[in-house]
Nucleic acid binder design. Structure first.
Ligand SMILES: [Mn+2]
Ligand SMILES: [Mn+2]
Ligand SMILES: [Zn+2]
Ligand SMILES: [Zn+2]
Lengths: 168, 168
DNA sequence: CATTTAATTGAAATTAGTTGTCAAAAGAGC
DNA sequence: GCTCTTTTGACAACTAATTTCAATTAAATG
């Protein structure tokens, strides 16, 4: 990874930032538990999809999951990925992130709720948590006579990478 | 409109709420000015699209615009609506609102920036403005080494309409 | 007003992402 | 292993949006 991509270095901070959103990696047995908790059968395809979500990049598309799992199970179908991602999302084991009309991205739902800020130049996604904003959203809902169920907060901007600051 | 759909009445407020986001209706000459400002030719299709956006419902889909303009110009094509809405959006005369993977909705960009809260039961969309949240978004961006360009904040919940409170 | 020219149009094809269908394959309980 | 039900992959279908292209039209020019 290019050092210039790391904002805290550009800002001259002394220590690397703690990753804001903590993810405790899962093991094989966790995958099985997740699948059985949903009342579904454990299959190699489903195990592969969870394994793929659990390692490597965090916000992946169905396409990316498909490609990754296909390495191990070459005759897996697209539909299986979409179907299982949908189930996981319904049961909140996975969170769907939709960035501006593009393909949906998926991540294993971490303990802490968070939102995202995306670089419009390089596509880098940074996670953040802001309890003040969360609280204010509740207030806005009440003021308008709503009971809040969920929200989508996506920030877009230009990140600290010098490549992303080109004026063109 | 059903009285029970109006949150301020349910909350027992004395006066109807001022519409938070003010929209000064445009006239024919404004449409022409908008089109010419973009360096485009004035056509009856484009005039019809702007007229449609200017009257009636605020957050409309391309489909809805197409249907409305088709009444007057029955042989207008879909592509014309999409093309012009895209141009208008690029030039910020129109704002695209995307609610959860559905078809994009469009509105003439009003003077004041605002966000939306949508009822997950009846689909009603209410506009709001919260400068505190806007400010906090800026701070979040800076903290993460970003220069903020824009954001998407969509709240979802259950509105004041009794029909929307059914526990089913 | 007529001529010219480049922009715009509608129809249809195309794309991207996702969902539905269905017969064959494969888990899970016995 | 046998049975029953779920799950699967292939492929069709679907939705929203975009692209292509020949015909039409706005508008600049004289
Ligand atoms: Mn995330
Ligand atoms: Mn609005
Ligand atoms: Zn960047
Ligand atoms: Zn409602």
């Amino acid at each position: 990874m290019n050092k210039s991509e790391i904002p805290h270095l550009l800002r001259g901070d002394q220590n690397p930032p703690e990753k804001l959103i903590v993810r405790e990696p899962l093991v094989i047995d966790d995958f099985k538990r997740i699948i059985r908790d949903m009342g579904l059968k454990v299959t190699k395809q489903r195990m592969g999809i969870l394994k793929s979500l659990n390692q490597g990049r965090v916000h992946v598309t169905a396409q990316e999951v498909f490609e990754e799992v296909s390495q191990e199970y070459p005759d897996m179908g697209f539909a299986t990925v979409y179907r299982f991602l949908r189930k996981l999302t319904e049961k909140n084991f996975v969170t769907e992130v939709r960035l501006g009309g593009q393909a949906a991205r998926y991540e294993l739902t971490p303990k802490q709720h968070h939102d995202h800020i995306t670089c419009v130049r390089c596509g880098r996604i940074v996670e953040f948590q802001n309890l003040e904003i969360e609280q204010l959203q509740e207030e806005v809902a009440v003021e308008n006579g709503f009971r809040l169920t969920h929200h989508v907060l996506e920030l877009y901007g230009i990140c600290g990478d010098p490549n992303c600051h080109q004026t063109n």
